[in-house]
């Protein structure tokens, strides 16, 4: 269902809702387009006229700084006009339904919605109900997917280690609640990554996790052996209250990435994190700031990936409906 919603009849990107089921060629095409976008972000005038006259609305029903900011910056680098609408504090509180909010924005001639919502499936729902000329990009929905984050992660890996077939990538932390991890696993499997591992306590793993095509480790030190890339996930504080974990200290003791533990991985292993980092919970400061850490590169690459996705989805659309 997602695929027919995401791609148009000729196989081009229409909406970008999930990595799951994305054809290999499409995923690589997004990464290649993002590669060319990186050139725009480093020159003196950081702007191209590709989406001039398009209006993009960031609909964030859930707070976000990094994702919203990089989507906004990406749209502005492409010369689109951007509306930032924080819906946790606006119309929805006044009782307006989601569809009414969308219809109002459509009436303002918006061309694209970038949607972040705490409920899985919201971006799909919106894509199914918007006017045919409007495009939808998922900026994170519940536990389901965060496709642009996953693509910026594999983009970052590809820049350092382009041969995915020979790579072993470990994702460490709260897999159970993580939309980022789900999208990363799909992206890594589509790119035919040699081995994808998940490392977490049993309480933070979905019951059917093996069916995602990953190797499961409960012990961090076992799981880090011979790894080329370590992706640490953010631990949300509310997990402590919900009984999934005893304490942050306990988590760091067993699953925190320290210098000593990083040495178990390959000597040139990359350290990644979608941010924001909890220093001393997911990893030590010395690891976060080490030369192996590419965490800030991930942020920069987020702009290029979002530029690629937005321009590909808005290609061949009329400026005014």
């Amino acid at each position: 269902m997602s695929l027919s919603l995401q791609l148009d009849a000729s196989g081009d990107l229409k909406h970008f809702l999930t990595v799951e089921g994305l054809p290999y060629e499409m995923l690589v095409s997004i990464l290649d387009t993002a590669e060319s976008m990186t050139g725009v972000t480093v020159r003196s005038i950081k702007k191209v006229p590709l989406l001039r006259g398009k209006t993009i609305a960031n609909l964030f029903f859930e707070p976000s700084t990094r994702t919203r900011t990089t989507f906004e910056l990406a749209a502005k680098r492409l010369s689109a006009d951007v509306l930032n609408i924080a819906l946790d504090s606006a119309a929805t509180l006044k009782g307006e339904s989601l569809l009414d909010t969308l219809r109002n924005l459509e009436a303002m001639y918006v061309d694209m919605f970038v949607v972040r919502h705490s409920h899985s499936g919201t971006a799909h729902f919106i894509a199914q109900h918007v006017a045919p000329h409007i495009r939808v990009v998922n900026a994170g929905d519940g536990r389901h997917a965060h496709p642009t984050q996953a693509l910026l992660d594999v983009f970052t890996i590809r820049r350092h280690k382009p041969d995915f077939g020979s790579l072993c990538v470990a994702i460490v932390g709260d897999i159970l609640h993580s939309r980022v991890a789900r999208s990363q696993i799909h992206a890594l499997n589509i790119l035919l990554t040699g081995e994808v591992r998940v490392i977490a306590p049993r309480t933070l793993l979905p019951v059917d996790v093996e069916s995602f095509g990953v190797r499961v480790f409960y012990d961090l030190e076992d799981g880090l052996r011979d790894v080329d890339v370590v992706i640490m996930l953010r631990l949300q504080h509310e997990r402590m209250q919900s009984g999934h974990l005893p304490s942050e200290y306990e988590y760091y003791h067993h699953y925190g990435l320290t210098r000593d533990r990083l040495q178990i991985a390959k000597p040139d292993a990359l350290v990644m994190h979608p941010g924001p980092i909890n220093r001393g919970v997911e990893m030590s400061s010395s690891v976060a700031d080490s030369p192996q850490s590419v965490i800030l590169e991930q942020v920069s690459h987020g702009i290029a990936i979002r530029m690629a996705v937005m321009s590909m989805a808005l290609a061949r659309t009329p400026t005014t409906p």
Binding site: S29, D32, S36, L50, S311, A315, R316
Partner: peptide, 10 residues
């Protein structure tokens, strides 16, 4: 761009 889209190999 609005008619033919983005060149696949930029």
């Amino acid at each position: 761009f609005s008619h033919v889209g983005l060149h696949p190999e930029v």
